[in-house]
Design a protein around this nucleic acid. Sequence first.
DNA 1: CGTACTGGATACATTCCCGTATCGGATCCG
DNA 2: CGGATCCGATACGGGAATGTATCCAGTACG
Lengths: 221, 221
Amino acid sequence: MTSLTRGEQPKRVTRRRALTRQRLLDAALHVFAEEGFGRSTVDRVCERAGFTRGAFYSNFTSLDELFLAMWEERAAAMRDGLREAIAATEGSGALDADDPERVLRAVLDVIPVDDAWYRVTAEFTAHALRNPPLRRVMAAREAAILDALLPLVEGALARIGRRVTDRTALGQALIAVHDGTSVQVLLEPADPAVRARREELFRHVLMAYSTEGPGEGEEDQ
Amino acid sequence: MTSLTRGEQPKRVTRRRALTRQRLLDAALHVFAEEGFGRSTVDRVCERAGFTRGAFYSNFTSLDELFLAMWEERAAAMRDGLREAIAATEGSGALDADDPERVLRAVLDVIPVDDAWYRVTAEFTAHALRNPPLRRVMAAREAAILDALLPLVEGALARIGRRVTDRTALGQALIAVHDGTSVQVLLEPADPAVRARREELFRHVLMAYSTEGPGEGEEDQ
DNA sequence: CGTACTGGATACATTCCCGTATCGGATCCG
DNA sequence: CGGATCCGATACGGGAATGTATCCAGTACG
């Protein structure tokens, strides 16, 4: 379908080019969110970005490729955000021996339930499941993102005195819970209880996949 | 958009009508799964069913309406299947005091990870999130389905000596875990470990939301 | 400061899909 | 079995979106 393997860069990336690329990415997020990925068209994305289709085809070969670029961006932002948030809890005075709540907060604030983003990824995932090469690309990238995020969570847990028993299982569980409960929260936006149950489930998972053991580096402060 | 409230039935449902309706439903499932809900068209559904668009518009007003009918069908089948499966475990000899595994099996076999169905519902859900009236309809139906299924699970748990602490929370958690882990299994179809971790997570949830207490009716036997 | 080149706009031909209105044959009922 | 009714096929008039090929202007570099 599309060449999903990094094509050769045109020797230099002019300033202008980078800008229009970014504008296209921003516009696409809105369009995908509003129309749905499946119903989105190159036309609309360009219209929203204030370009014509020529600009699009000069920067991307397909909406798939564009989405993957968008995802990359998002993942990087999340990774940085999480790192920062966890670092922030670190400085904040004395650590109680047991304060999983703080870790939970840090994580949930950085990786929130984002209406638009949820819709877009859900649809794109379904789309990828229909297309084996794309599915593989997606699985690989997801694994990479998890690899970057997990150590952060694990470190945070260690600092409050809990050792993770099975790193991979915890990662899979957290993602499943995040995704699975996000829909529920979005479907029932008026009901705060749904959100509360989501967080309770996160607590259960964090506890179930870690054990009260010596944190690696700093047991308490 | 579409009148999602049950319209008035034309006084009688002729045999022929029922048949074409069913053929349209079956065809639609395939088309949705293959093309994606968003990219599916009335044309294609009819083509696949061997009708022309006239037939479609005579039976449904929109693809949304058709999907809801499809979902209804599916939910009913699941409910019956689950009831039957649980009833089957009932007769099977002496119950060990603690055999959550049996309950888990019964449930997982009836509500499997279904590739095509997952894609379709995921996309339709995203679509519904974009459309408040439709979102409400969907939330309501989901709640109704859960109401029908939960007592069955609760009963099965009671028979192995576990009392559910918070019915609603358990239901929400099970659904979240089912949905969230389904994607993972489908994204990584070659890796049996992913599926194993899914089931492990189910076990954790079943235990976390129930307590070792006297089952309501039949403590043992 | 001018020129070679890159990037985005425009035009084009094609394909697909929508929803309605009307018609003729199948189906049901007495 | 015959008439009333129902149902699905056909015809119609538009409206988008696609990807490509070509062209002009803005940009960067010597």
